[in-house]
Nucleic acid binder design. Sequence first.
DNA 1: TATGAATGAGGGTTCATTCAT
DNA 2: CATGAATGAACCCTCATTCAT
Lengths: 201, 201, 201, 201
Amino acid sequence: MRKVDENKQKKKDALLNTAFDLFTTKGIAKTSIADIVEHAGVAKGTFYLYFSDKYDIRNKLIAHKASQIFQKALDDMQKEEISTLEDYIIFLVDHVLNQLNSNKSLLNFISKNLSWGIFKNALISNPAENDVDFFDSYTELFEKSEKKYQNPEILVYMIVEFVSATSYSAILYNEPVTIEELKPFMFESIRQIIRSMELPD
Amino acid sequence: MRKVDENKQKKKDALLNTAFDLFTTKGIAKTSIADIVEHAGVAKGTFYLYFSDKYDIRNKLIAHKASQIFQKALDDMQKEEISTLEDYIIFLVDHVLNQLNSNKSLLNFISKNLSWGIFKNALISNPAENDVDFFDSYTELFEKSEKKYQNPEILVYMIVEFVSATSYSAILYNEPVTIEELKPFMFESIRQIIRSMELPD
Amino acid sequence: MRKVDENKQKKKDALLNTAFDLFTTKGIAKTSIADIVEHAGVAKGTFYLYFSDKYDIRNKLIAHKASQIFQKALDDMQKEEISTLEDYIIFLVDHVLNQLNSNKSLLNFISKNLSWGIFKNALISNPAENDVDFFDSYTELFEKSEKKYQNPEILVYMIVEFVSATSYSAILYNEPVTIEELKPFMFESIRQIIRSMELPD
Amino acid sequence: MRKVDENKQKKKDALLNTAFDLFTTKGIAKTSIADIVEHAGVAKGTFYLYFSDKYDIRNKLIAHKASQIFQKALDDMQKEEISTLEDYIIFLVDHVLNQLNSNKSLLNFISKNLSWGIFKNALISNPAENDVDFFDSYTELFEKSEKKYQNPEILVYMIVEFVSATSYSAILYNEPVTIEELKPFMFESIRQIIRSMELPD
DNA sequence: TATGAATGAGGGTTCATTCAT
DNA sequence: CATGAATGAACCCTCATTCAT
């Protein structure tokens, strides 16, 4: 990579990292572009060379961070010996919840801003360079499974929404119970949801 | 009610109604207090006599609107002949979804701003005057049910979160499928979740 | 006038006067709203209570200043004994040119910004409160004149444009000659223009 | 011309053409140097190799475009059989007005920016390479005329200013009348102005 | 209680200009 | 000659909040 390009990447990364730090500590609404560039050590105009506005950098961050979480979960899943799709999914959900539980500001950032639209665009349709293509991953899981399911996309949608919606308040505020207390019920519910869409052999 | 008090209530109502209209059409971020008071026909200072800021009026609106929705659903439920808790819940969920489906700006407003904390505070712990106490309602349902359940609060929490999370994108953007296509899977999943927490007789 | 209203007028006048000073010394392009409010001793937001932007205050100033010039010329004309329309017009033009010649920054400000549209709107169709209605004035002149003319509006238009266009560079830069050298030719030309539109008795 | 020089000229022309297009469509104030270089397909720094700023390129454009208009009018005049200076001038004015009438954005661009100073500098004192020397042209006209005039330069100045001032609003906004309605009065006025400076034989 | 004029910090954004490559 | 990334001052404008009336 030429020196100029290296420098460009360095500035862009500085902006992304700084923005993430500020978004997770102060919140997006209270973070100004002036804040970001000041902490990143670049000029205000430089921000606009790489991002169109605050929400552009936010979306790119969400995509990237969400991808990282899934990538870690998938990587660790390879090392396990798991036999059924149900168990695979529970493993993934558990792994993701553990990551979020130990990084609450990340959960706060992602959950407050994640919508199915951004999620799908980021992880499924247009994963950024180097980011995991979630669609490939779950397609592969469903194909390798012995059991077949009525509508895998809806199934995944329901599980993703169910998990993210119920975990948010439990992890961050222990409401209505802690995440550890919630997990058994949540996992059992997920298994039931999966089974309810199972096709007969 | 004395004339002055009537007048006070009239101003407060004007502010609430105007704020709701603007929040649902322009969004909260793009609605200024200047907007609200101008359309409501009161002076700027008057706003601060009744609400502390934009987010105060928002929370009060959410509580009230969410309460109205439940009230309607509960009222209509009385007229039906339903025998099991499962069927009661499905009826309520379906009723609420139908209301939201025919009032998408309301869904957008509530969902973008509803968190379990606000929800609980609004409907369960501190219902505003005249608003329905959701806690009483569901406690009664569970008590009258023949079947008993492990942890009714968690069960309600999971269902509420599951429904609100999965319906949002389906109703507003038909993603990943329309709400009508989603309903059979959603309802079946809810039944499974309920059954998974059923206690043996 | 109530005290608040007095105060309002005082702020508005301060803004108008300050803007005029800055526009004539630095030019409009180089005058920022920050400049104006700072010198006027009011807050930035106050500017926007009275004017929508820099060009709004400019137009209001032009209208007002142009009106003042005509008012003075008309006032002095009353004191003279003049018999023909031709002589009235030459008197007015001469008077206006003398005013502008002794206030070159005013000429610069008005001429750089005056268009027939603004002029007509300001002096003829919508004179601001207290400002002279130029339409009434010239209508009266034409009505009192013994000689009648084909198309008074076009005649006035041509004279106004001719005078303002030819005097600008002569007064400000003595180009191609000084205003005093130009005047005899200009006045004779005006007389000829008037005569060319004269109707036979 | 050497290849490098050709390339230089090509870049300069690209900048001039692009600037003209943008100035006439968006206006000068709303055209940035970034706009110009982007549409011209050259780098930002390159602009500063050929022009000192936006107003430098503007002045060069005005000179060139104004010259083109006169050149066309003069060329066509050669083909006509005209006997008096008065008729020559009317022919030229009419020709120029027709050109501007069919190219209103050009009129808008020139008139908003033309001052006698730029005009004189461009067309009379320092015509750019290949551009017509207007001074030579009108001197020749006056010399060939049988009738002689008191002060040809002032006469030309007055006519130029009169025509440009009165035609602007008529062509662009049909105010106070259309250019076609205005022409008879304008031409008659020009004839009167010319005659008023005629010397006795 | 109610008003609304005034505030001024703070926001987002633009853009002419430079200079290392 | 040519480039274009980087700059950062300057700009316009918004708006929650206050307080004298």
